[in-house]
Amino acid sequence: MKSNFRRTSFICLCVIPAVILFAIFMVAPTFNVFRLSLYQRSTFNPNEVFIGMKNFQMLMKDATFIRSMQNMLLLIVMVTVFTMATALVFAGILTREKIRGQSFFRVVFYIPNILSVVVISGIFSAIYDIDRGLLNSILNLFGAEGVLWKGEKHVIMSLVIAMVWQAIGYYMVMYMASMSAVPGSLYESAEIDGAERVTQFFQITIPLIWTNIRTTLTFFIISTINMAFLFVSAMTSGGPNNASNVALLYMYNQKNLGGGYGYAMAIGVVIFLVSFGLSALVNKVTERDILEY
């Protein structure tokens, strides 16, 4: 009994500092975001006026907000699909096949991940250049007309390309780590049974690293929301005419220009709930029995 009490108090003592820090730096600010979203408050005027759900009612009528949410969701879906597909294929090739310079490719794919977003946006500014850019030069070579990559029609696609390019390496390394843990005997017996490489990939590799894929899906949602803010700020400033604006950037700008802190926090609440809901949904949908090997 006594040792149990000592054990409990020791655990409490160990946990308390972390709990206090978590409460001060995570719980309290989050609570404050929810509280402020019900108030009207400007940045430099400490007077807070309680206005209930009015900020949220205004949000539903705000066309730019709706557009920025649409852009955010579109980016989440497209970046997730393209990055996951390519990262899985590359990881599969690099772990299962014997290719010359394997570690060289691994490094090359990972490099974009350690570059700063500002550098990446500089690189893509050159790639997307209308007259002398890499992409338009290739198009011109085949007689096609140059594309306005950062124009209203293609700006989201341009962001997707840059974001996928940046993210592939990170997820590829994660998938490679779990793929290399899959026992080689499974592939050998599959081969004897006559299964081809593609079948092996879908029947053995994917089911066995499913837990890992599920975890990365949550990562995709959260990191795309954050990275989209950085990429859009650096590459397009949300333009032309809000065509590439995303929810976090809109929240940041509203704090300064439009509706003040209260309104910006209401946007924050919506982003919070959407990302939370989306992660929960994805988690539920991808639920499978864990395969052991």
């Binding site: 209308i130 950062k150 333009g239 032309p240």
Partner: peptide, 15 residues
């Protein structure tokens, strides 16, 4: 000039 809006951002305005 039709290219203008596609370059009218903080990164490419000098173009």
């Amino acid at each position: 000039h039709p290219s203008t809006p596609a370059q009218a951002n903080n990164q490419d305005f000098t173009k």
